[in-house]
Amino acid sequence: MFQIRTLNNISARGLERLPRDQYEVASEINRPDAVLVRSANMHEMEIPETVKAIGRAGAGVNNIPVDTMSQRGVPVFNAPGANANAVKELVIAAMLMGARNLTQAWEYTRNLQESGESLTKAVEDGKKQFAGFELPGRTLGVVGLGAIGRAIADAALALGMRVIGYDPGITVEGAWQLSAEVERAPNVDALFAKSEFVTFHVPLVDATRHILNAERVKTLPKGAVVLNFARHGIVDDHAVMEALDSGHLGAYLCDFPSETNRHHPKVVALPHLGASTGEAEDNSAMMVADEVRDYLEDGNVRNSVNFPETVMERVEGAYRVAVVNSNVPNILGQVSTDFADAGLNIIDMINKSRGDLAYTLVDVDQPVPESALDAIRETPGVLSVRIL
């Protein structure tokens, strides 16, 4: 029986993917095999040594101590693309709000005190200050071409916009899924120079913090609209506020209100609504529950932010061992030797690496004695060993 601890309210549809005859799921479990989390901050938590996997029901993992987990040989899973449609719809709505000054116009009419013909006159007199522009023919720059960025690019193309994209880390699979109509920018500065709208869909890391800063704001066309529905910190709020005040930028729409931005008349700051739909929460929970279950039961790794993608079909009648180790020479050879010394024949094996980590699945023909597992555990560089 696997024990799963939940740190937030995880969608019931996701938890249903964990059969009750094999899994105990609760928020009070002290020594869980895995943790499912949404937004809870795990950096200050004491994470039990029993934890073999962490699943984030969403895309970003800033609330999880990924490096610490890597050192312990624990994969961190997420749900990329599960909330893509929800974020796409919100970004398109934000583009329309920015182009047509919808929130400012709504605020104007909501605060009118007139009535009757006076109200009609006030409405007609006021509408001129909220005149906007249409989207067809405008250029949208998309920084980050993962599932969300691609969805937004497709939607913008359907609206008649020109789309420029930049993502130095795009995968081959991601590139295949990207519309041929999306122009590739050689770097982010070239993208900014051509973008009347710019939207960000990248994680917050050292390389992306304040990717739009005071210098780069100046390279955007006059009147450009900035959208940040990725992570707070990707955009330098102070630089954007100054550009709004000077008239260089037309609007800033984001999902991250702050003391700096939330009262500015050209800012629409929403309360982190990106993935706040029932459908997105269900999709994220179902995806990450499936990933954690596949890892616990079969050792397969799909959509991990720190482990290599590793999938091996089960061999009928075989006994499976999973080994996590530092990515250094000769550990795989040592593991094979330990199996041979125990009289075990390897039927199938897969070994993958990612950065400083390596991961191996081995199917052998007989039950694995504890002495063989102990020998592997004692090998310098081995972080964890599991028999499945």
Results as ranks from 00 to 15, higher is better:
residue 1 M to H: 05
residue 3 Q to V: 07
residue 5 R to K: 15
residue 5 R to Q: 15
residue 8 N to D: 15
residue 9 N to K: 13
residue 10 I to R: 00
residue 20 R to V: 14
residue 38 R to G: 09
residue 43 H to W: 14
residue 46 E to F: 05
residue 47 I to A: 14
residue 52 K to Q: 11
residue 55 G to V: 06
residue 56 R to M: 04
residue 57 A to S: 09
residue 61 V to H: 10
residue 62 N to I: 12
residue 64 I to E: 03
residue 66 V to F: 12
residue 68 T to H: 13
residue 71 Q to N: 09
residue 72 R to S: 12
residue 72 R to E: 13
residue 74 V to H: 01
residue 76 V to Q: 03
residue 77 F to L: 10
residue 81 G to D: 11
residue 89 E to D: 15
residue 93 A to N: 01
residue 95 M to D: 06
residue 97 M to T: 02
residue 97 M to I: 07
residue 101 N to P: 07
residue 103 T to D: 11
residue 103 T to F: 13
residue 105 A to P: 07
residue 115 S to C: 13
residue 118 S to Q: 13
residue 126 G to Q: 03
residue 128 K to L: 11
residue 134 E to A: 06
residue 143 V to C: 00
residue 144 G to P: 00
residue 155 A to G: 11
residue 156 A to K: 04
residue 157 L to V: 00
residue 157 L to A: 00
residue 161 M to Q: 04
residue 163 V to C: 02
residue 164 I to Q: 00
residue 165 G to P: 01
residue 173 E to I: 11
residue 176 W to P: 00
residue 177 Q to F: 13
residue 185 A to P: 06
residue 187 N to A: 15
residue 194 K to T: 08
residue 196 E to Y: 05
residue 202 V to G: 04
residue 204 L to K: 09
residue 210 H to I: 03
residue 211 I to D: 01
residue 215 E to N: 09
residue 219 T to F: 01
residue 221 P to T: 01
residue 226 V to W: 11
residue 235 V to E: 00
residue 238 H to W: 04
residue 243 A to K: 03
residue 245 D to W: 00
residue 247 G to C: 08
residue 250 G to N: 07
residue 251 A to T: 07
residue 253 L to T: 05
residue 254 C to D: 01
residue 257 P to V: 04
residue 258 S to G: 01
residue 258 S to F: 06
residue 258 S to E: 01
residue 260 T to D: 14
residue 265 P to C: 11
residue 279 E to I: 12
residue 281 E to R: 15
residue 285 A to S: 15
residue 286 M to H: 06
residue 287 M to A: 15
residue 288 V to E: 02
residue 291 E to M: 10
residue 291 E to K: 14
residue 293 R to H: 10
residue 297 E to T: 14
residue 301 V to W: 09
residue 301 V to P: 07
residue 305 V to R: 06
residue 308 P to N: 06
residue 311 V to M: 10
residue 312 M to P: 00
residue 316 E to M: 01
residue 317 G to K: 04
residue 318 A to T: 05
residue 318 A to C: 05
residue 321 V to F: 05
residue 327 N to V: 00
residue 337 T to R: 11
residue 347 I to E: 14
residue 347 I to S: 13
residue 348 D to Q: 13
residue 351 N to H: 09
residue 353 S to G: 08
residue 354 R to V: 02
residue 354 R to S: 09
residue 357 L to A: 01
residue 357 L to P: 02
residue 359 Y to I: 07
residue 363 D to T: 03
residue 364 V to R: 00
residue 366 Q to H: 12
residue 367 P to D: 11
residue 372 A to Y: 09
residue 373 L to Y: 02
residue 376 I to V: 15
residue 379 T to K: 05
residue 385 V to L: 10
residue 387 I to M: 12
residue 387 I to V: 15
